[in-house]
Amino acid sequence: MLQQRADRPAERSPIVVVESLVKRFGSFAALSDVNLSVAKGEKIVLCGPSGSGKSTLIRCINHIERHDSGRIVVDGVELTDRMADINSVRCEVGMVFQSFNLFPHLSVVENCMLAPMKVRGLSRSEAHDRAIGLLRKVRIHDQANKYPAQLSGGQQQRVAIARALCMQPKIMLFDEPTSALDPEMVKEVLETMVELALEGMTMVCVTHEMGFAREVADRVLFMDRGTIVEEGDPDAFFRAPRTERARSFLNQIIH
């Protein structure tokens, strides 16, 4: 693990570049002048108090939130208001939500097949094979024909991960994927995310799971009031945060 980190991914070519990003909600500045570069294969954990802009930041990367100024470049495509750019970025960026957001009227396997068929143009059988393969990977293929409401929260979130992976994205965004789960289900979702990380997926995760951050993150970014206040190696960050704001935040989440 340490050897893997020694091979600093940050020195490889960046796949996501965020420059001087500003996002306002009315008069409230959710993000003010955020800069971020994510290298191919890099795993980044974003943490910070609620309202600090961490979710807004990753939601800007796939244009679920429209940014007000600054630049976002994903895999060489700059995010503008052109639908073609937005869609080509969204095809490469998978997202997992806090509240799963599975489609309740479709079975598990149909949830995974929809976008590959409609967006990537896969045939039904190709999409089905791919979906079953990825459901197997998240160890939930035996529930493929059930409906989301019949599954536990942890299972639903693993389906959501498989659904995003079915688009074969280059980057995965996780927006507090374990916050809505009962404690005993957090582990199964984190294990799935660790496996994904070990396979070399580029990941940006908003999470407060420190164990996960320690195990897989290359960098931890700490955000507060719309800016990145501190960043660093997870061990160093959690052991000895440099800024006062990060210190008081960590004191609050460790009790």
Partner: peptide
């Protein structure tokens, strides 16, 4: 319909037509 359903469709790059045709309207009708 929950806002998250629209966001999930956006994140999957579904077109507006496919979003309503395959995800939103079937839920509304049910």
């Amino acid at each position: 319909v929950n806002k998250g359903q629209f966001e999930a469709c956006q994140a999957l790059a579904l077109s507006t037509y496919d979003t309503y045709r395959s995800v939103i309207l079937p839920q509304v009708i049910r």
